[in-house]
Computed example of a mutant assay.
Amino acid sequence: MVYGVREGWRREGFESHEGGVGVLLADGSEPGPVFFDLGSGSTFHESTSWWHYDGTFRRPAATSMRGRCACGWRGASRYPIGWEKVRENDDPDAYNTTGPYTEWEAHLDDVAERAVTLPEDLVALLGQVWERLDRMWLEDDTARGYTTMLRACGELEAIVAQVGPEAAQVLGREHDEATDAIAEALGTTEKAARARLRHYEHLTWN
């Protein structure tokens, strides 16, 4: 079973698709953020954490939960919230959120399936690089060892700086503002795809 995770749900390689528990009111609408007055003048804190929609202190009262993703996806199923059980444990993290999480996982599977697949030999090479750099922490815990790691990072950045800008510029020219297809291929959101294109278009390495 999956219980509340305050930091949100993430999958390696698809960080922009952070998931979490969304809520619905009795009329089926999705409420906006809850605002908290911290007592410091005009400063307010906002939250979309599901356990804050309990109807207390004039907050919206949620009746059900569903999966949600930063990309805008929302789960189709609704799961009633037992507020008595939430208050009984006095710990939102102890509440079972398996239903919303399972639907978000299926959504991420779909995102991954529609993303471009890296060649197997490249996947293997990247895995070897990760593994080798990770071993260096154990093999040489000295200034020389850390210098070696930094030099390796420099070599990797040089490769990215040579390949990334050209790929980003070509994609930018061919797709113009149509970043939805690029985002889908990258397995990311449109906002993250635009940011990545801008980052690589102007990347240089000295």
Rank of each mutant, 00 (worst) to 15 (best):
P60H: 05
D37Y: 00
T188A: 10
L24M: 13
E103W: 00
V23D: 00
A185G: 14
E15W: 01
A183Y: 00
G187H: 02
Q162N: 09
A152M: 11
V21W: 00
L138R: 15
G82Y: 02
E103G: 02
L24F: 08
L25K: 08
D90M: 14
W137F: 15
P100E: 03
N89S: 11
S47V: 04
L24C: 12
A185H: 12
E105A: 00
T148M: 11
P60L: 01
A152D: 09
V21M: 00
S47W: 05
L133C: 09
V160G: 07
R11E: 04
A115N: 06
G164D: 09
S77K: 01
A193T: 14
C153N: 11
T56W: 05
H175V: 09
G75E: 09
A161R: 06
V160E: 12
W51G: 02
Y101M: 01
D27C: 06
W50E: 00
H199P: 06
I159K: 03
T148Y: 14
A143R: 05
L118P: 06
V123Q: 15
T97W: 13
C153G: 09
S64F: 01
S77N: 08
E190C: 03
N206L: 15
N89R: 13
D176T: 00
E18P: 03
E18T: 08
V170G: 06
D109C: 07
S42E: 15
E157S: 14
S77M: 06
E105N: 00
L156V: 09
S16E: 04
D109N: 07
E177K: 14
R144F: 13
R198F: 13
R151H: 13
A195C: 02
F44I: 10
D110S: 10
E113Y: 13
S77Q: 05
H175N: 08
T56A: 14
F36H: 08
G75M: 09
